[in-house]
Design a protein around this nucleic acid. Structure first.
Lengths: 140, 140
DNA sequence: CCCTAAATAAGAATCATTATCTTTGAAGAA
DNA sequence: TTCTTCAAAGATAATGATTCTTATTTAGGG
């Protein structure tokens, strides 16, 4: 996982720094679409003097280089996702809990639909479902 | 349109104030999913001394009372939508332009799919498609 | 091992949004 | 119509996430 990340960084011409590795690692480990704040808190244990600005800058550059994805929510706090495969999100507005939802069959149906029904004046690049509702289990 | 809004306010036990009418009117007239800032600027012409806090407070309470909807974007600025019918959004990341996309046939397909394929541990309340891509026409 | 551009740290600055507290005014009651 | 009252608006301070600035450090190629 970390090796993959190191390789990706080099591929993009980005230096492999302990901060970048720690931040990426935090997103993967936290795995519940953490905020920048969550990442900072998590990292503080092993990197007590990492700078807040660095975290934001690293998150930004990783998103720009397609190593992370931003997650949209109702709130004005940005959240991040290390899962890059094409997936959707289950979102509970009450608890702000977000889970990944992968469904190849659904993707196929949607792709077929949009291939058969082009949108006037718009070229589709990506389609994401925001599935809002309630989780019926407790936090895993 | 404004009459509809007045009635809705009364229905919810909210007072009909010039500010609320002006803010709602601005969202409808601007009609391109404006930010709070956009609304303030637009309103300033007729209400030079409306307070910024009031605009945010009104937007919040209108969202809470289902007279407006929040629109999620990649950016950390909240945007608002007066169109309440079940619709999706076409979004261009480059220009931040957002257009409504209504498609009953698509909604039916998606609803059928999720009725036939329940998600474990999750009760779906609403599904929105975030369709990202590029507009091939100019701003209307 | 050195060099240099890239990256980080520290902390100030910004910007959207929220909170506080006083004043105003919408709308039901008299 | 006027009075009363509580919700709403105004002014502005505060907050909190994010961005910017500048000096310092460091990854990694030569």
């Amino acid at each position: 996982m970390i090796t993959f990340f190191r390789e990706k960084l080099q591929e993009k011409g980005l230096k492999v720094t302990p901060q970048r590795v720690a931040i990426y690692d935090a997103i993967v480990k936290l795995n519940n679409h953490p905020t920048a704040e969550n990442v900072i808190e998590y990292i503080k244990a092993n990197h007590p003097n990492i700078s807040v600005g660095t975290v934001y800058k690293v998150l930004d550059s990783l998103v720009e280089n397609n190593l992370l994805k931003k997650v949209k929510t109702e709130k004005d706090i940005m959240r991040y996702d290390a899962v890059l495969s094409n997936h959707h999100h289950l979102y509970c507005a009450e608890t702000d809990r977000i889970e990944d939802y992968e469904d190849e069959k659904l993707n196929a149906i949607i792709n077929d639909y949009f291939n058969a029904n082009l949108i006037k004046n718009f070229r589709v690049q990506d389609i994401k479902l925001q599935i809002t509702g309630k989780f019926t289990n407790t936090i895993k």
